[in-house]
Simulated scan of single mutants.
Amino acid sequence: KGHFINFNGTAGIWRKETIIDAGNWEGDTLTEDLDLSYRAQLKNWKFKYLEDVTTPAELPIVISAARSQQFRWNKGGAENFRKMFKRVVSSSNIDFKTKLHGVLHLLNSTMFLNVLIVGLLSIPMLYIKNEYAHLRVYFIVMSFFVISTIIFFICYWYMYKNTYGGGFKNFISYIGMFFTFFSIAMGFSLHNSIAVIEGHLGKRSEFVRTPKFNLAAVGGNWKTNKYLKKKISRNVILEGILMLYFGFGMYSAFIVGDQGGDFGLFPFHLMLFIGFGFVFFRSITDKQ
């Protein structure tokens, strides 16, 4: 309680006095709303989050729109870490726990880089684990990090239950949604990792607006939206290769070792295979 949150631009009301006192809007990051949120909270302004208030929103309906949105959000997060890290750590207005939470929050987008690195290394590690028995104890210790996924699962379940209710049927529905969400998020890990690296290195890029289609009004005319990208990202071929790579990881589960395989990483490789496959095929088949 009392830790930093960020206004994400989707819905909310700012006090003019807050904006001015925090230093006004600044355009040196791709997520200026996150930037202003932190500067305001460092000035001791408080946000009030109203869970029972809903506003209409629109998700991207084509993969190119989702890619540009994800790139901007994740690069902007890394840019804000560069910009705000020292200010948060050196602030005299907040306690240590809030500083730690604030820094980790700013590193949120860097999660994708970690997912990509762990995913790439997981297949060689699978072979090493089964070829060198004396190293198995290290892999058992490292499996502790699976707990992070369990924590995510539990936290999201509580939010889902508060919104849609509990019960066995809703829980089964939630499991399917969680698996799908995690798989597709992993499929964006290459794309988002590039954005994160650029953000941490300070490489500047233009603000690419996420296309809005308002389907209820325009119907089938959304393909004329001028903000739609017409070219396929050159990273799509790498995502296709990664799909095959993690397919090989699933196959490897059946052949490694001398005890009939090792399926500990199979669910992880399955989600990566589905995620990269989804992003790859949607990127080359979406008609714009």
Rank of each mutant, 00 (worst) to 15 (best):
S173A: 13
Y245H: 08
N130L: 12
D52P: 00
T54K: 06
T285D: 01
V137Y: 15
I123K: 15
G77H: 15
V218D: 05
I128W: 12
H105S: 13
P267L: 13
G199R: 00
L201E: 07
H101L: 11
V103I: 15
R72C: 03
F246P: 06
I61S: 02
S122C: 07
S193G: 07
S283N: 10
F96W: 10
V141F: 14
Y156N: 05
K129W: 08
Y127S: 02
E206R: 06
F246H: 15
V218Q: 02
S37C: 03
F96Y: 13
N93E: 10
G257I: 06
K229D: 15
N192C: 07
H105D: 10
A22G: 05
E58N: 03
H3F: 11
E51N: 03
G247Q: 10
R87Q: 14
G76D: 08
V218L: 06
L30N: 14
V141L: 14
S68M: 09
N192S: 11
R282Q: 07
E239R: 07
F280M: 01
R87K: 15
K43N: 13
I154P: 01
E17I: 00
T54H: 06
G247I: 04
W157S: 07
D95R: 01
K129A: 03
N221T: 11
T18H: 04
I151C: 01
R67F: 07
G199L: 06
